[in-house]
Each structure stands twice: as C-alpha cells, then as structure tokens.
Design a protein around this nucleic acid. Structure first.
Lengths: 191, 191
DNA sequence: GTCTATACCGAGATAGAC
DNA sequence: GTCTATCTCGGTATAGAC
C-alpha cells in the first residue's frame, strides 16, 4: 500500500539515530525518503506523529530481535545473543550511540505523550531479560539483575559514542557475557 | 567581575540538563539568568561558545567532585563515594538523566569541535577510576573495569530517565558498590 | 558595558492546483 | 493521492542608541 510511509519512517529512523530526531528536519527526512516535503503531511499529521511511528517501528524491530534470540538456546545463550547485538553494531554505536537509547533520552526530555510511549521500548526489553533471569534462578533479584545487564549495555553505548571508540562496547560486552555465564552458579551458591 | 557570565552558564547548565541544549533557546537562558537577550552576545559570540563554557564548567565541577572523593579514604571508599553521587541525585536523574551523559550524547551527534571538547568529560573520569582500580590491583584489566563501572552508572541514568523511576539508579548503585567491595579479593584470587 | 529593536533564516505546517 | 508554493513563527545573531 503506502510504500512511501515505510520509506519515511525508515529514513527518520536513520537520521534520528545519527543526528537526533529534533535536530533533523522534515525536509531532510523527506529528501532521504525520496518523498516531496508537502506529501509528508498526507501520511503524518505532525512531526510528533512521525516520532510515534518511529517508536512503533523500534518496538516491532526489538520484538523480532527477541524472537530471534529465543531461538539461540537456553537463557544464558539467549542473553549472550542479546549482548552480542551491541558488540556487532559497535561501529554504528561509536558513531551515533544506541538508537533506542538515544531516542528515549531525547523524547524523555520533551516530556508529553511521546515520552510515555517510548517507555515501552525499555520496559519490554527489561521484562524479557527478567524472564530469562528467572529461568536461571534469579528469583526476587531478577529485576535488579536485569537492570544491571541493560544498564551496562546502554552505558557502554553512551561512552563509546562520546569517545568515538567502538572498543568500549566490546570490552563491556565481554564483561557482561562473562557475568551472565557465571550467574547460574552464583545464584545456586547463594540459595 | 562578570557575575552575569556566571549566571548565564549556570542557567544554561540547568536548562540544558532538563530540556537539552539545542532544544533550549538563548532567550530562555537569558531570562533564567536575568540577563537581557541582546546582552548574551557580549559574553558569548555564539551559542556554541556558550556550550563550550558549559563543558568547561562541568570539567571543573567534576574535578572538584573527584578531589572530594579522594578524601573519602582508600580506593574502595573513593569509588563508593563516586557511585553514591548518582544514587543521591536519583530524583534529578529520573527527571532528566545524567547531566554530563546527556550533554556528551547531544554534542556527540552534532559532531565538530564541541564533540571533541566534550570527550574530556568522560576521559578524565575514566582515567581517575582507572587509577583507583590500579591501586586495587586491577593491573592490565583496569581500563575494562573502569569502563564497566562508568557504563553501569551512565546506563542506569539512561534507564531511570527513560522510565522516570529513581529506584533504577539505586538498584544499580548498590550492585556496583557490592562489585567494587568484592573486587580486591577477586583480583587477588586471579593473580 | 548594557540593552532595545530588528534583520534574517530555517523550521513546521497549510492551501490549493492537479 | 500527490506535489508546489507559501504562510507563520521562533530561533540565532546583529545594529546601534545609551
């Protein structure tokens, strides 16, 4: 149906990642998507409506990613697969940071309904990690452990971006994977 | 001398933290600082020049903070003091994220000389943490361990901000402090 | 050194022909 | 449904009186 709508969201995702959503003009997005500026408003009533579609797109994307990680095997392998995504995207992360992290940070400062919508991005991710940790015997500590894992990934993205150094994500990814692998025995010892 | 200059930087720091630097207009900053808009340009040739002063201000602030932490005792206590800053500022972090993290992320996407200047913020902080870890026997692993610590703090700020939940920083701060306390024996066991 | 008024531009958004 | 031309506003920056 509307191939153009998809192209617009795609272009917005790319530009918002590299330069920030507010910093990117609709004219730039329209050009990148090969759609005339005036036509953008046929698909999105306002720029914020486009941001909403952007969030939706990332929600889908991440759900698909999680579905793929679930095929990786047990909880440990699944979490390792999740961590590996950051490591494999290190070059882009060093250039522009985490796409979802950047979006949430930016929209969080605007406040309003967009900030509310964006919450789901990390919420769903944290929930999924928590499920894996429960399966590892995390019990009541699972929430805090999930936060630790996602914090590490997001923080490493922030640092790598700020320093322009892909190696930082790799270091942290290795550290977190080792932590995940040791987690089962640590949780058993504690119980 | 120029009390107004200080007020402008102070106001810029506050507004940039809460709403983002690019998102904040000079008019808002001027008003918050009780300085007429036109007068801003007597102190700063451009808006970017104000951003530069902002970075400078944070560099000073963080140097002062580190000096204070060094009075806390040994390396473990120093690092705990560092971690506690995030925990104590949890309300502001949940509202607006990490001030330096947000600034670095934003300026990092603009690129140019400001992004370069901002690198020093995390660079100095990482160096200081590394020194403490060396004192704990971190050896060749000190850099990766430093990244892990700062990643956790920055990532927790991102998550807490996105979710609007101060508790997230507290969880991660506790986890990191426990990690720091156990570090000496883990490093000894490894050697 | 200080402040008012304003130039200028780029942004989001709209009108209306096709 | 599609696109061009344009409106309007808010932003940075400047001119120039005091």
């Amino acid at each position: 149906m509307s191939d153009k709508r998809t192209r617009l969201v795609e272009a917005a995702a790319d530009l918002a990642h590299r330069r920030g959503f507010r910093e990117t003009s609709l004219a730039e997005i329209a050009e990148a998507a090969q759609v005339p500026l005036g036509n953008v408003y046929y698909y999105f009533k306002t720029k914020d409506a486009l941001a909403e579609a952007l969030i939706e797109r990332w929600l889908e994307e991440m759900r698909a990613a999680r579905a793929a990680w679930e095929a990786a095997g047990g909880p440990v392998e699944r979490l390792e697969a999740c961590i590996d995504v950051a490591a494999r995207g290190r070059e882009a992360v060093a250039r522009s940071g985490s796409p979802v992290g950047g979006l949430c940070t930016e929209l969080g400062k605007s406040g309003g309904p967009l900030a509310e919508k964006a919450k789901a991005l990390f919420r769903e991710q944290l929930d999924w990690i928590e499920v894996q940790l429960h399966a590892l015997g995390g019990g009541a500590e699972a929430p805090a452990l999930a936060i630790h894992l996602l914090s590490g990934l997001q923080g490493a993205s922030v640092l790598a971006h700020a320093q322009g150094d892909p190696a930082l994500v790799v270091y942290e990814a290795e550290m977190l994977k080792a932590w995940v692998r040791r987690l089962p025995q640590r949780l058993r010892a504690q119980a």
